[in-house]
Design a protein around this nucleic acid. Structure first.
Lengths: 198, 198
DNA sequence: TTCAATTTGTTGAATGCTCATTCAATTTTG
DNA sequence: CAAAATTGAATGAGCATTCAACAAATTGAA
């Protein structure tokens, strides 16, 4: 019965171990040996299921990105379907991972850095960035003049990234709650200002 | 005559070479060998002047941070001494490095990542962050109610970091000019909104 | 059911590579 | 010639990858 199950179980074990090791020891010293140890499997298994270390790292980033997508959907599920609420849900989702795993921002940052020298990771990163941007623009379009939409979306995206970075650098000491609050404050400001108040 | 000069010349040669190599090959593969090659010196010289690779990396980050400080001073020099102009000068300075060296954002990002697992680099990073924040707060205090100052400063700082990150990820394709413009737009919005308009 | 045969899953020692560091030898400077 | 500066081959540590050997699960014939 476990024929098809074993493979996905092992893959997830290794991805979880990778995240754990990167959080604990940093990307540079996340070796196959440590990852295998953390997963209670052997070093050889990595090549078997992922073809090598690089494959495991890419799968791990894919997992992080899809988790984020999942968080966005979950965050939107129980809320009123208004443009403003949708924007707030996106902000919440982008910081919900930090709350559960206080140090996961470290992992993101490591992947961003790594992505700059790996075409595959870079591609993943871009897809995600575009999705966030077009998501934001879709809702902003319903709240302000068309010519303000793109720049506002870019600013929100930059804000999210900036606070993530801060969260990563501060060893978890910056409160995600605060970052969320400041992002939301900016969104309300932007809606207000771009409706003739400025 | 060159007794005291040689040391500082060699140090700067090696720091320049380090920046060049990181920009070209990435932080991970910036080896002593490549750095020595780029500086046209030998591998042994690194230990001689910096005690080892880690020492060279720290010195390089110190150099980047002091360059940024220098850019801030320069940027402020020829402008009216009003709070708003000072804020704009800070924004300009934070993106002037990107303009001259299109890929230096990569180096910053690499150092940020590295800093998270090196107490010395982390300390440098924190000092710099505090300086930026208190700088911003000093001028914002003259432009808005006291209770808005800290959060506005944090938002501006996050915006700057966020756009830097974007610049780094986009392989230099995001225009620093645009980032500067959006930061400035936010500052003017914040000044406006926090003076009773919202 | 029982037990080999076969397939599937897993191990970890051996291999070979990259790299930082060291330091005796060499060159340059004063 | 003494001191300072520089070299780069030698060393050894750390690491990813490989693969022959082992273990577990599955099958099917008796």
């Amino acid at each position: 019965m476990a024929r098809l199950g074993v493979e996905s179980i092992r893959r997830q074990q290794l991805i979880d171990a990778t995240l754990k090791v990167i959080e604990a020891h940093g990307f540079q010293s996340a070796t196959i040996g440590k990852i295998a140890g953390a997963s209670e499997l052997s070093v050889g298994i990595v090549s078997h299921y992922f073809g090598g270390k690089q494959g495991l790292l890419e799968a791990t980033m894919r997992y992080l990105l899809s988790s984020l997508q999942h968080d966005v959907k979950t965050s939107m599920a129980g809320r009123p379907n208004t443009p403003r609420e949708r924007l707030m849900a996106i902000v919440d989702a982008n910081f919900s991972g930090v709350q559960t795993h206080a140090q996961s921002a470290k992992t993101w940052l490591a992947f961003w850095t790594q992505a700059m020298h790996s075409p595959d990771l870079m591609r993943l990163q871009r897809v995600n960035e575009r999705r966030l941007l077009s998501n934001l623009m879709f809702y902003l379009r319903q709240l302000m003049p068309a010519e303000q939409v793109r720049t506002t979306a870019q600013t929100i995206a930059a804000l999210i990234d900036g606070f993530w970075l801060r969260a990563a650098m501060s060893e978890g000491r910056i409160e995600p709650d605060q970052a969320v609050a400041l992002c939301k404050t900016y969104i309300d400001q932007a809606i207000h200002v771009n409706n003739g108040a400025f």
